[in-house]
């Protein structure tokens, strides 16, 4: 995640080319991370836009030794968590269906893993968002503990423990899928296999 100092300098000077390069390099992974975290493609695209807008506005207020990528992921994480908190509040108030699932996540990957993908994302959606964040960063983006520590603003050791606890929690929740949900997943997988 190390960055050339000159890149940060150029970004701080609001160099358009530097910003285009930055967006080109990070747009896909950041959007993918947010998509997996919030479970909604359109929302993820909007949040990515907001993230880079925030980067553009605030880069001038940062220190010169800024860990750029970690900082950007940190902004994205904050946007994602804020969205999830609001969504949970709305669901709580309106008693909305919490099992809505973005199918674009299910189809991204080998077909024989569709069911696992759906269940994994649904299980992560049930977890504490902060625990889900470290699992997404560790397993989805392959960040090291140190890099995740920079993003979430804690120590590397704390991240290591949180990842372990998260995996354990995930495993315990993964096995407890309701029957209706399992049927829905099964129907979705069958439909895909049959080309419907």
């Amino acid at each position: 995640m190390a960055m050339d100092d000159s890149v940060v300098k150029r970004l701080r000077a609001k160099d358009a080319q530097a910003f285009r390069s930055l967006i080109e390099r990070l747009q896909q992974p950041v959007t993918g991370y947010l998509h997996r975290l919030v479970g909604d493609r359109e929302v993820a695209l909007d949040l990515t836009q907001d993230t880079f807008l925030q980067v553009y506005k605030e880069i001038g207020n940062t220190r010169e030794d800024l860990a750029l990528d970690a900082w950007i992921y940190r902004i994205a994480t904050n946007f994602g968590l804020r969205y999830l908190n609001r969504k949970r509040l709305k669901q709580f108030i309106r008693l909305e269906n919490r099992e809505a699932f973005d199918e674009s996540l299910a189809v991204a990957g080998p077909e024989d893993q569709s069911e696992t993908r759906i269940l994994v994302h649904q299980t992560l959606a049930k977890m504490n968002p902060k625990d889900a964040v470290v699992l997404h960063l560790y397993f989805g983006n392959n960040f090291t503990y140190d890099e995740i520590a920079q993003i979430v603003g804690t120590s590397s050791e704390a991240v290591r423990k949180r990842v372990t606890r998260g995996v354990e929690k995930f495993r315990s929740l993964y096995g407890t899928k309701p029957a209706a949900q399992a049927d829905k997943v099964g129907a979705f997988v069958t439909a895909r296999r049959d080309g419907r």
Binding site: F52, S104, H136, F139, E168, Y174
Partner: peptide, 29 residues
């Protein structure tokens, strides 16, 4: 748990967002 969660990495590798190009994002900003 770890094996199941490994699919996140696979998903990440497959996800693409062509509807908004970097130039478009920068112009919007």
């Amino acid at each position: 748990g770890s094996q199941k969660l490994n699919v996140l990495g696979v998903t990440a590798a497959y996800l693409r967002y062509p509807e908004r190009s970097p130039a478009q994002i920068f112009d919007n900003i």
